[in-house]
Simulated assay, not measured.
Amino acid sequence: MSEPTACPNCATPLQGRYCHACGQKRIEPEEQRFGWFLRQLLESLTMVDERFLGSLGRLLFRPGSLDRDWLEGRRKRNLAPLSLFLIANVVYFFYPPLSDLNLSLAEQLAQPHGALAQQLVSARLEARGIEFEDYALQYQAEATNLAKVLVILHAPLFALALLALHWRRGRYFVDHLAVSLHFWAFLLFVVMVVPWLLWLLVTATGLGSKALLQLTLAGIVLAYAWRQIQVAYAQPGWLALAKLPLLLAGLVAAHLVYRAVQFFAAFALS
């Protein structure tokens, strides 16, 4: 079969594998085979293709490389930052809620917004004539549902911290948001996988403790953040290290805002 000289979609003369007018790819002979169709179906159902695997590998093991590509305009070969984050979030939907992202009502009352929360809860208990323990169960049901939906709030909040730390570089907010989305996608994957691996190691060796596991996890996240910022923003390692405390403060601030939003949303729904 001879190769087409015009795009079958818009009839524009072809000058390569892709039409420069509408972007449609020229249909190759191998794409007419049933095996190719099955491979495309598998990739569509599982999202496992070369671009996904390559992007996931670089996200997990080459901190900042995806960000560097994004900031320098090399975006075609990688999944978009939001796509990677949403994939991580979809996986997290099938994972037991992380306690730090799903505080109980009593724990919420001990947060910086706890004074206002206490007033609201007390008024609701009096209005409904119920005990705190009974309402806490209603609240927790809504909070658990929201915990996995609202986790994306961390990304734009953390991006503000990145913007503040690198404002002299003249980058758009969306560039810092891309870096933030990559970081939170990595964080979700790590908190779902690493604790299990560490637990298996402790079980097999009999060495370690819960505190050691938590410190190890924190060390992995901080080391990743340091390297990601160093590579993403093309700056010396010492400068990225100097910014790490401010970066950590930004993480904490974003998380506190998330907790407040989660409380008020769950309170409104319960």
Results as ranks from 00 to 15, higher is better:
M1K: 13
T5L: 08
N9F: 04
C10W: 07
P13A: 04
Q15C: 05
C19L: 00
H20K: 07
H20W: 15
G23M: 00
R33F: 07
E43D: 07
T46H: 01
V48I: 11
G54Y: 03
R58Q: 10
F61Q: 08
P63R: 00
G64T: 03
R68K: 15
L71G: 03
R75N: 03
R75C: 04
R77T: 14
R77P: 07
A80Q: 09
F85R: 03
L86Y: 09
A88F: 13
A88D: 12
V91S: 07
Y92H: 09
S99Y: 12
L101Y: 04
S104Q: 11
L105W: 06
A106F: 03
Q108I: 06
A110C: 11
Q111H: 08
P112W: 00
G114A: 01
Q118Y: 15
E126Q: 12
A136Y: 02
L137K: 06
L137P: 06
Y139P: 01
N145T: 13
L146C: 00
L146A: 03
V149Q: 02
A161M: 06
H166K: 08
R168H: 01
R168N: 05
R169I: 10
G170F: 02
Y172C: 09
F173W: 05
H176Y: 05
L177H: 05
A178Q: 03
L181D: 12
F183H: 08
F186G: 03
F186C: 02
T203I: 01
A204D: 02
L207T: 13
A211I: 11
L212Q: 08
Q214A: 14
A218T: 10
L222G: 09
A223R: 12
R227W: 08
Q230V: 10
Q235F: 14
W238I: 12
L239I: 15
A240N: 12
A240T: 14
L241G: 13
L241S: 13
L241R: 14
K243T: 05
L246V: 15
A249H: 13
G250P: 15
F263Q: 07
A266I: 02
